[in-house]
Design a protein around this nucleic acid. Structure first.
Lengths: 385, 385
DNA sequence: CAACTTAGTTTATATGATAAACAAACATTG
DNA sequence: CAATGTTTGTTTATCATATAAACTAAGTTG
């Protein structure tokens, strides 16, 4: 339990991270510009940049425009120094991407899963991963890690404790992958991956306090506070789908009553939709587009229930942004106004002001891109440390 | 928006803080022991300790027991280097304490308030503060600051935006006090003060994720995540009293329906108690002690509702500890078992394990001692920086 | 009392940031 | 177009800090 002490190595680490951040976020820019923007001395910046160039993390891309004197040498983050693998493991699909270090997709692959048994899923998963690794171009660092989002509760070692819709219990997936590929592996909940994806590459860029609500079969949430994923005492939290919104409501399999996801998830919607003769979200949305009144009313009621839960989230966390993602975001057209009205009626004005409710920008790719970012950020942390 | 860079001054700052922390938390101890426990070199520790001694923050208290060689010189945090003022402003009382830098109470004072008008409250408040300041012993730093907890929403400049039970709106109390006494002033919500008090001096010592539930006239909460008070995007959060637990429940003055505090606060209890002929919490508790069955049932039902809200809190935050404080903690004997049973029935097992529900240890002094700690921690931060 | 232990200080050294001087490369202007 | 000024980036001397190793101080143990 030693406190973290400081020495000269720590200084260099801090300043290297500052310089690299500047290059990543504001590229292209010159050494002089870095010095000016960070407050670091020109000499310091020169020295640190040289280190980063020697390590293939930064490249010079020639001179820029003069502003009345010597032309600056423009620097760029070398996003092709390595590649990251992101996997979104769904209940009936595996989606995978290979990205560069900027998170830009290089290769993508999607495969259907028609069974949830571990052995069969692993077969498809391994094939996907190996295809993607094979597709990586030559680079100094190669594939730097594997990030993954899964529909379940995961501890910080990549152990899947419980994945109800896959019917998995205690699957040590992290260890399996680490040993098989000898790469750093980060596995987290699908909603946490989606939250990170949107925060980094999507609608939540630059937001400090963001709650991502993944509305699919159930409701999952990724909670970002102070720009970081919040995980509770046990290393997993974000079970806002089991926030009860109705004290004496229907019993949930979790033991509680009136859980939010019983009212506002895709499952809840489809339960009602079945009575109208619709078997899928798509068919219901089509009907609504064609003017089917009952379909529209049903969608609106889901918007209402979503709003009620989101109002609670807002009163609890006072976030800057609430993001609605995963499949239900496709119903935006029908649910948005009911949702906003309910939120307006049910939140404290102090929290409502300066707060926005947005829909995921990356659509179905929120989670897979967030997963890839897990691998990228692990790599960069190692490079900075 | 400059990133924080590192230089030699930063190192010294970090290491000074590490040494001071060690002395505060593990005193009495020697220079050698600090070196061993922090990993800092003996020479570094000697130098930093000398600085702290020169600044009156650490004192030598003579030699300790030898363990086979030269006797160590034992060091102590100089808790009498200055004094802090803590104020708990209630709806019908003002409680104040003067503490040393360890948070130990030196002087205390309590005065009743029989009006909520700003002018009159200010009169009593000023008198309390001046009495306490006058009672401070001679010391190198004197009174280092004023910390305060108030029943309302406060921004980070000490501006009280809204205090419903005092009927205050937009009162710039922080500025008033700062100008009048020329001291650092920190004002926060009463529940945040209570949460800090318990975390530092009470039942929550050493806990990283702790939710303090202040059950009084309404319900307020102080949320401590990663050992720090969480405040949302706007600088104030913790309005868990307005977490709705009943979708179509009674309308609340906040605009929402079915807010938790309509079911589980002292006000909610007294509303029901009135029907049985009881006018106060005390009389109801007495009746319960005397075996009055309806009184007991009523208290138990409050325990049930408290439990339902706390179950939601646990599912959201996955904390290590939930602390119940303020006046309702006096009803512990009657509400605890119902509360625990409800929580057990309504939380996810992953969250329930390793989680404890405790009652405030400092009783009525949680908030006032937390308020004093605001001042102390501000002072220490300045000393370390 | 000799040998060993532990506490704390002194000294020499290494790392890293910085200011100031300098060199390189360009624009502007009379 | 030559002289002047500006901007970029590097070199050099210096400063602050931490550290290891040597050293001094003050004890214990057999």
């Amino acid at each position: 339990m030693r406190k973290k002490t400081g020495d000269t190595a720590l200084i260099k680490q801090i300043n290297t991270a500052v310089v690299l951040e500047a290059v990543i976020k504001q590229a292209p820019l010159s050494r002089a510009a870095i010095s000016e923007r960070t407050g670091l001395n020109k000499a310091t910046v020169s020295s640190l940049v040289q280190d980063l160039i020697d390590r293939d993390l930064v490249i010079e891309i020639g001179t820029g425009e003069s502003s009345g004197g010597r032309k600056p040498v423009m620097l760029l983050f070398n996003s092709k120094a390595g590649y990251a693998l992101g996997i979104d493991l769904g209940v009936n699909y595996i989606r995978g991407v290979l990205t560069d270090l900027n998170g830009e997709i290089i290769t993508e692959a999607e495969k259907n899963l028609d069974a949830t048994e571990l052995e069969q899923v692993l077969g498809v998963l391994y094939a996907s991963i190996e295809d993607l690794i094979a597709s990586a171009p030559e680079s100094p660092y190669g594939v730097v890690g594997i990030g993954m989002g899964v529909p379940g509760i995961v501890d910080d070692t990549g152990n899947i404790l419980f994945a109800p819709n896959l019917e998995w219990n205690q699957v040590g997936l992290g260890k399996l992958l680490k040993e098989r590929y000898n790469l750093p592996v980060v596995i987290d909940n699908e909603a946490n991956a989606g939250a990170k994806g949107e925060q980094r590459y999507g609608a939540g860029r630059g937001i400090a306090h963001q709650i991502y609500v993944s509305v699919g079969i159930g409701i999952g949430t990724g909670i970002i506070l102070n720009k970081e994923l919040y995980k509770g005492a046990s290393g997993f939290s974000g079970e806002l789908g089991h926030l009860s919104i109705d004290l004496e409501g229907r019993p949930c399999r979790c033991g509680n009553r009136g859980c939010w996801e019983l009212y506002a998830s895709e499952n809840a919607l489809l339960e009602q939709a079945a009575k109208l003769g619709f078997g899928s979200l798509s068919s219901l949305l089509h009907a609504a587009d064609d003017g089917h009144e009952e379909a529209v009313r049903l969608l609106q009621s889901i918007g209402h229930y979503l709003g009620a839960g989101i109002a609670n989230i807002i009163n609890v966390f006072n976030p800057e942004v609430v993001l609605i993602g995963n499949r239900m975001s496709r119903a935006r057209r029908w649910i948005e106004s009911e949702l906003l009205e309910t939120v307006n009626n049910r939140t404290l004005s102090y929290h409502r002001n300066n707060m926005r409710i947005l829909f995921a920008e990356l659509g179905e790719q929120s989670a897979v891109r967030g997963a890839a970012y897990f691998a990228i950020s692990g790599f960069l942390a190692k490079m900075k440390g």
